[in-house]
């Protein structure tokens, strides 16, 4: 079974608690369920507000799964792992 590489972009708001938590949670999930098959780009909206505007990011943190298709948006600090896995189409791997 060929494993696809997951491309993520995580929009964070500086070192706000939710953002810090989101980075940690995402890393944990990826390490566990997508070892070696993930690519995370962290974007700080405070540093690149224009980008956040064009991407329509108003609630932080927001995780965007760019690949594989379809593109998915997940809002929040990703503390609810089962919801995240479901959104990423990884629920089967949870076991």
């Amino acid at each position: 079974m060929s494993r696809r590489v997951f491309k993520f972009r995580l929009y964070v708001a500086g070192d706000a608690q939710n953002s810090v938590d989101a980075i940690a949670n995402l890393t944990t999930i990826c390490r566990k369920y997508l070892p070696g098959l993930y690519d995370i780009e962290v974007m700080d909206v405070f540093l690149e507000p224009a980008r956040a505007l064009t991407d329509g990011i108003f609630m932080t943190p927001t995780l965007v799964k760019l690949a594989p298709a379809p593109v998915r948006r997940i809002i929040g600090n990703l503390s609810r792992t089962s919801l995240v896995l479901q959104a990423l189409g990884l629920e089967g791997s949870a076991a």
């Binding site: 929009y11 708001a13 500086g14 706000a16 939710n18 953002s19 938590d21 989101a22 949670n25 909206v45 405070f46 507000p49 224009a50 956040a52 505007l53 990011i57 108003f58 609630m59 932080t60 943190p61 927001t62 998915r72 948006r73 997940i74 809002i75 929040g76 600090n77 990703l78 503390s79 609810r80 919801l83 995240v84 479901q86 959104a87």
Partner: peptide
């Protein structure tokens, strides 16, 4: 179509508004 998984805040919006 966005999914909510956990706490979030409005910092993103404020960052955008700040710049704008």
């Amino acid at each position: 179509d966005s999914i909510q998984a956990g706490n979030f805040d409005l910092s993103g919006m404020l960052a955008v508004l700040e710049a704008k």
